[in-house]
């Protein structure tokens, strides 16, 4: 596969390490009343879509950026690649 890095252009997937669902960005609030339940879901429950999937890839043999890659799990078509840091900020993880 080839991942089109938003800053560095197309790179072979061999340079990357796969983590999983980009929902891992949405880490729950540790002080929430139901924190245990939320962390349980966060840690163990994943959707397993046949189709579009947002997932985290790490450019380990590259610039060390974490990316959110939108990939179709049936065709491997990649429709979007974003810096995970930008996605995290968009999802409200910034200050």
């Amino acid at each position: 596969m080839i991942i089109d890095h938003p800053l560095l252009g197309p790179r072979d997937a061999a340079e990357f390490v796969y983590l999983g669902d980009a929902a891992l960005i949405d880490r729950p609030d540790w002080q929430a009343a139901d924190a245990m339940e939320q962390f349980h879901s966060y840690g163990y429950l994943r959707d397993n879509p046949a189709g579009q999937h947002q997932e985290l890839w790490y450019h380990e043999q590259g610039d060390r950026s974490w990316l959110v890659v939108t990939r179709n799990t049936l065709t491997h078509e990649i429709t979007a690649v974003e810096l995970a840091r930008d996605v995290a900020r968009k999802r409200g993880r910034g200050k």
Partner: peptide, 13 residues
């Protein structure tokens, strides 16, 4: 790798 994950994905600012 995990530190970079924490830095970029969990506490980006």
């Amino acid at each position: 790798r995990r530190l970079e994950f924490a830095r970029q994905c969990l506490w980006p600012d």
